[in-house]
Design a binder for these strands. Sequence first.
DNA 1: ATCTAACATC
Length: 475
Amino acid sequence: MIRGYSRCPSRDGIAVYARMRQQLFLPGDYDAPFALKCCATLKALFEGEQIHADVLKLGFECNVFVQTALLDMYVKCSRIETAEQVFNNMRVKSVVSWTAMVAGYSKYGLLDKAKRLFHEMPIRNVVTWNALIDGQTRFGDMEAAQWYFNHMPQRNTVSWTIMISGYSKSGNVEKARMLFDRMNSREVVAWTVMISCYVENGEPGEVINFFREMLAADVKPDEVAMLALLSAAAQLRSMHLCSWVENCINACGFKSDIRILNAIISMYMECGSIERAFDVFQKIPNKDVISYNSMITGCAAHGDPSNVFHLFSLMTRANIQPNSITFIGILTACAHRGLVAEGMSYFKLMLDLGYVELKSEHYACMVDLLGRAGELDEAYKLITEMPLKAKASTWGALLGACRIHGNVKLAEMVARKLFEIEPENPGNYAVLANMYAEKRMWDEAAIVRSAMEKKKVFKTHGSSWTEEDYFNKAL
DNA sequence: ATCTAACATC
């Protein structure tokens, strides 16, 4: 029973173990590992710790399978140090134990430790290599990843997929596609990675034909592949394509997956159809925080604060806890329309709730809101007193506000900060130079312009894409 | 039996 539950994540697996123990049945060697796997996939640290205690009481502490499952449970629950302790206390270790530890270090970017263990361990299998390479692609560099990939004794589809995903994340679409074409057995995961590669690197137009190729190759899309396709349709902003994707999803029977429905909301919002997004939203029986966030973010982007506030109150009534993204949406809506009082009160509410993770975006919205309203000193105070390091975009919002209100003195201070953080951004130099010019301070304007030339930063031209551009490229 | 790859709200 427990093993069955461990195959598809569910709290019931843990419950079966607990019931067995309540009735004082003695577990065999196989029970704890599967129950711990349930805890690992669910990130149920509390339950995992209880099973850990039970395991010690029952005297399983020397069982390699039990210990390895414990170590993996701690890794999955983000307790890398506890996992390390379990690992160090193991008298007998299997290749799986070593691999789980390498995977844990890789997952948290502890590449030196991962590498040390990798070289120290007596036997390595393909999973070990993959775990190490995955860490390299995420936290190291692609050269290192490629080196290990080239040197591993055998590769499986996971190895190839990790590499494709790595090149995608580093923006190398050509290299990713090259590896994809060289793979011999392409499963749906590899296709999905390629779809997201195009989406994340701003080439959603490539996805249409690519997806057709995938269907032609007789590879059936799953929910995750559809999610990737949905973001491509969202980027393309084509209602025609959105409808087509939605029909595909209906045909596959994925309409009960909340993640899919949430992505459909965002897709229609991106395409400018609040009505269709709202329609999908209303039909979701078990709306979660992401459903509300997608609606709030979408309405905020369309400059519709009254619906944003309405959705927030609906959300509160439905007992769904707002998170940091909810507030980014609300504050964006306020900033967009210059609703200072509302913005301040939601910002205060967020601080009062206490559990919301504060992000620089929250402060950027507030600085923008206060700055545009002419409260430059308030905005400056907020930025200097914020508990996080202000990002360039936050200072940028303040610089923009200085320009609107013609405050050269503050602008100089802010611009100096920006030149430090992002010396390569031509926009900051341009704003300051234009401000001097507006005030007829020609000498100062010239100094900024020459500083710009000296640092070899030039203003780049803006460009935009239309739906036709993408289709022409696809054809 | 226990370890490795993809996705949605910013």
